Computed example of a mutant assay.
Amino acid sequence: MAVEKQVVIITEAAAFRIKEMMEHNEEQGAFLRVGVNGGGCSGLTYGMSFTTEKNDDDILDNQHGLEIVVAGEDAPILAGTKIDYKQSLMGGGFTIDNPNAIANCGCGTSFKAAARPAEPQPCE
């Protein structure tokens, strides 16, 4: 049975952009899945995707009208992580601030966390 709890913090700007992407991809009503995958030069990478499935161990949350799911095994690594969307003259993009990351790679796409050791991979 899924548990309701806040793991990640989605800013209003990020939620607005995610909802725009959902509409563009005709994914209204889907969950936003936030997770951690192995890979990158520091060992772990973030993942965000749309899904209609939720698993028994998922943690559910609703922020700014956005339904968010996080796998139970990823929750300790993502606890307190803030996801924002910033727009600049060069374009826009999501930023992720994870208080559990003990190191970030130079290219900015992967991180290392004490809670889940992972094997670093070559940068692409």
Rank of each mutant, 00 (worst) to 15 (best):
M48P: 02
L66H: 07
G65I: 12
E27Y: 06
G92F: 07
L32N: 03
G38V: 09
K82V: 15
M90R: 07
L60A: 05
A103H: 05
N104F: 07
N55F: 08
E26D: 14
N55W: 11
G35L: 04
L66N: 09
N62C: 05
G91H: 01
D84C: 03
K54H: 03
A71F: 11
L66M: 08
A71G: 14
T95C: 05
F50K: 09
A79W: 05
E67F: 00
G38C: 04
G40S: 03
L32W: 01
L78N: 06
V34K: 01
A71R: 13
L44H: 01
G43L: 12
A79Y: 11
G92I: 03
L32H: 03
T95H: 10
D58H: 06
L60F: 12
C41M: 08
G39V: 08
G35E: 01
E73K: 15
H64E: 11
H24P: 00
S88D: 11
T51A: 08
T45N: 04
T52Y: 14
G43P: 02
R33H: 13
L78M: 02
E26V: 11
D84R: 04
D61Q: 10
A101F: 02
L66R: 09
T51H: 09
E23Q: 13
F31D: 11
G93H: 11
T45E: 15
L89S: 14
L66V: 08
G35C: 01
L44P: 00
L89I: 09
G65D: 11
E67W: 01
L78P: 06
A75F: 04
T81Y: 10
T95E: 15
G93M: 10
L32M: 09
G43K: 07
D74F: 03
N100C: 03
Q87R: 15
E23I: 07
S49Q: 13
F50T: 11
N98L: 06
D84H: 04
D74W: 06
G93Q: 12
A71D: 15
E27C: 14
K54R: 13
G93N: 10
N100W: 00
V70D: 00
D56M: 05
E73H: 10
G39K: 11
G35A: 07
K54P: 00
K54F: 07
T45C: 14
N62I: 08
N100S: 09
G35H: 02
T81K: 07
T45V: 15
A103Y: 04
L32S: 01
I68S: 03
G91C: 03
S88T: 15
N25R: 13
C41G: 10
D56G: 08
E53H: 10
L32Y: 02
